[in-house]
Amino acid sequence: MTRLIVWRHGNTDWNASGRVQGQTDIGLNDLGREQARAAAQLLAGFHPDAIFASDLQRAADTAGALAALTGLPVHTDVRLRERHFGPWQGLRLTEAAEQYPEEYARWRAGHPDPGAGIETLDDVGKRLGVAFQEAADTAPGGTVVAATHAGAARQGIGQLLGWEPAVLRTIDSLRNCHWTELWHDDQRGWRLRAHNIGPRNDADSTAGHQ
């Protein structure tokens, strides 16, 4: 049995202010660093065999907290980045709604291709699904942790599990520094073991674009 832990990064100032981060490289704030340390203490108990992370600072630094406890290197992978949000990146959601009302309405409705230069859900899912699978393949029968982003995590998980978009939309986004646990074996393939597990903090953001 191979275990894959899909871990969302800690809080950032843009999370706190409701700005769309997408692939903008925003670092952790003090709360995010505290969350990463707390989550790393829990994840170290899984005795991971490998750690992967998006190359964006907020995810790479989150993974670094676990690396500091385990002595494992962090393997960065650009495919683990968040969904690209085009011209929305840097805007508050209220601003995106005002400037791109039709695209915003489609995005809120879960349209797979809302327009405005936003990466399609299909592209995000395929990108993350391949990256997750390749990460897991580095430690068959072991435990792999992949630090990524909320929207990217959900789409990649859905790709591995083979879930239809309507089903995937019923799953809550990961809170800051929380994770999803997936198991894989040759008989049953990928299956969901646990979701949104991690240290409790009421200041966490759950926005799927972060």
Rank of each mutant, 00 (worst) to 15 (best):
L4I: 10
I5M: 04
I5K: 00
G10N: 09
T12W: 02
N15Q: 09
A16F: 10
S17F: 02
S17M: 04
R19N: 12
V20E: 04
I26G: 02
I26T: 14
L28V: 06
N29V: 05
N29Q: 07
D30W: 00
G32E: 05
A36T: 11
A36E: 08
Q41V: 14
L42C: 03
L43A: 12
L43R: 01
H47D: 15
P48H: 03
I51W: 01
A53T: 04
D55L: 01
D55F: 01
L56D: 09
A59V: 11
T62A: 13
A63C: 08
A63F: 07
A67G: 15
L69Y: 07
L69W: 05
L72M: 12
P73K: 00
T76Y: 02
D77Y: 05
V78S: 14
R79N: 14
R79K: 10
L80P: 09
E82P: 07
R83Q: 15
P87E: 12
Q89C: 13
Q89V: 11
G90F: 03
L91Y: 04
L91C: 05
T94M: 08
E95Q: 15
E95V: 12
A97Y: 02
A97T: 06
A97E: 15
E98K: 14
Q99M: 12
P101V: 10
E102Y: 05
A105R: 13
D113S: 15
P114V: 04
G117T: 06
G117H: 09
I118Y: 04
T120E: 10
T120P: 13
L128G: 02
V130G: 03
F132K: 01
E134L: 12
D137V: 00
A139Y: 11
A139P: 11
A139D: 10
P140E: 07
P140R: 03
P140D: 03
P140I: 01
T143E: 09
A147H: 04
G158I: 05
L160R: 06
L160V: 07
W163S: 01
E164I: 00
A166Q: 14
D172E: 13
R175Y: 11
L182C: 04
L192T: 02
L192N: 01
R193V: 13
R193Y: 11
R193L: 08
N196G: 07
A203L: 14
A203V: 02
D204T: 11
S205Y: 02
T206G: 10
H209R: 08
